[in-house]
Simulated assay, not measured.
Amino acid sequence: MGNSQEPGVAEKEFAPAHARHLMTRILSDRFSERAAGKEPKDGGDDDAEALPPWLTEADIDYFAAAFEKTGFTGAINYYRNMDRNWELAAPWADAKVAVPTKFIVGDGDLTYHYAGIQDYLHKGGLKADVPLLEELVVVPGAGHFIQQERAQEVSDHIHDFIAKF
């Protein structure tokens, strides 16, 4: 596979014609399942697997239609521009989040499994950067799209948090 930052390489892999397949994989992905060695039931065709209960064919159709029309270049360019994004955000690099905060993440979210993140979250790093952190919630079995996957649970957490203000 080529360098996805080279113009045209990523666009081929993320071609609008592949939008339905890509959106199905992206929205259905569970890092915790892959880490546990679970393979697709049919031997590898991700689109043939049943969608998770929170995701419908109509949802996939909606996102696929949008990306079939626009392509993925805008999203790809965000990652191509990562160094510049960091440069632009540099003035706030040491800023603290100075409002009451509740942090919610799914244990199947790929970002929850980045190197060092769990130590950062659970051993004081997040609290140091977010001094008014009131609670860190890790939702078992939920992935990156937690607000859709566990809509009622997330809504309850948000309601309970803001009801005290």
Rank of each mutant, 00 (worst) to 15 (best):
A142F: 03
E68F: 04
R25F: 11
V105S: 01
Y120S: 05
D160A: 13
L133F: 11
M23F: 01
G37F: 07
H122I: 06
K41G: 15
W92D: 14
M23H: 06
H157S: 12
Q147R: 13
P16K: 00
L51N: 00
T111C: 15
W92Y: 09
A151T: 14
A128R: 14
A142M: 13
K102R: 15
W86R: 13
V137P: 07
S28T: 05
V130L: 10
V9N: 13
N3K: 06
K69M: 10
L22G: 02
F72W: 02
E87D: 14
H159S: 15
H113K: 08
R150F: 03
R84S: 11
A15V: 00
N85S: 12
D94L: 06
P131I: 05
V99S: 08
Y79M: 12
D45E: 11
N77S: 11
G43H: 11
Q5V: 08
A66G: 15
I117G: 02
L51R: 02
E57F: 01
A50W: 07
K12Q: 14
K69D: 08
L55A: 07
E6L: 11
A36C: 08
D160F: 05
Y79P: 00
D119R: 13
R150E: 10
N85D: 13
T70M: 09
L22D: 03
G143T: 07
A93T: 05
P7I: 11
L110S: 04
V9D: 02
A65H: 04
Y62I: 03
I146H: 00
F14T: 06
G141K: 03
D42M: 05
H157T: 01
W86F: 15
E135D: 13
F161V: 08
A163Q: 12
G124F: 01
S32I: 05
T70E: 15
L136M: 05
R34P: 01
A142H: 05
L136F: 01
V139F: 12
H122W: 03
E13A: 13
D46N: 12
A115N: 12
A128L: 13
D45Q: 01
P52R: 14
E6D: 13
E153F: 15
T56N: 05
A128S: 15
A65D: 12
D94C: 00
L55W: 02
D46P: 09
Y120W: 10
A58M: 00
L132F: 10
T73V: 14
D129P: 01
D83R: 15
A66T: 08
D109T: 01
E57H: 09
V105R: 00
I162L: 13
R84C: 06
A151I: 02
W54D: 02
D46H: 12
G8F: 03
V105I: 12
H21G: 00
E68H: 07
P131T: 05
F31V: 11
S155C: 11
I76Y: 00
L88T: 02
T24P: 06
E135Q: 15
D46K: 10
L22H: 07
F161I: 02
Y79D: 07
K127T: 00
F165T: 14
